[in-house]
C-alpha cells in the first residue's frame, strides 16, 4: 500500500470582505499543489476569491474532553450581554 500525501485543511474566502472559512481537506505533495487541488475540489462554482491551505498536523485544537472546563465558566455570566440590564422604555438611544 502506498503512503498518503500530507493532509491539508482548506479555507475559502467566499468574497472579499468576508473571512476565510474551513471547507474541508485534501491530500497534496506540497502547499502549491494543495492550492491547485483546492481550486478544483472546492471552487468549481465560483465559491471563492481566495484560498488558504495549512498542513493538518500544524493545527492545534482544543480537546473535546476539556470543553466544559474551557467553556462552562462563561455560561453564568449573563451580565456580559446587553439584555441583562433593565432600562425604562422612555429612555432612548441606549
Amino acid at each position: 500500500m502506498s503512503e498518503d500525501w500530507p493532509l491539508f485543511e482548506v479555507f475559502i474566502r467566499s468574497r472579499s470582505g468576508l473571512e476565510h472559512k474551513h471547507v474541508g481537506s485534501l491530500h497534496a505533495t506540497d502547499a502549491r499543489m494543495a492550492i491547485e487541488h483546492a481550486r478544483d475540489v472546492y471552487t468549481r462554482r465560483q465559491e471563492g476569491v481566495s484560498i488558504w491551505v495549512v498542513r493538518s498536523v500544524d493545527i492545534v485544537a482544543s480537546d473535546p474532553e476539556e470543553a466544559d472546563a474551557l467553556f462552562e465558566p462563561a455560561r453564568d455570566k449573563v451580565y456580559r450581554h446587553p439584555t441583562f440590564y433593565a432600562i425604562p422604555e422612555e429612555v432612548k438611544n441606549l
Partner: peptide, 30 residues
C-alpha cells in the same frame, strides 16, 4: 464533463469525511 467532474469532487469530499474516522485514503483506495 462538468457532471463527471462533480462526481470526482464528491468522491473527494467523502473520502476526506471518512478519513476523520481514522481510516487512511490509501487503505480505502486499496
Amino acid at each position: 464533463i462538468a457532471k463527471v467532474q462533480d462526481e470526482g469532487g464528491h468522491g473527494m469530499y467523502l473520502y476526506s469525511a471518512a478519513e476523520t474516522l481514522g481510516i487512511t485514503r490509501a487503505e480505502m483506495l486499496e
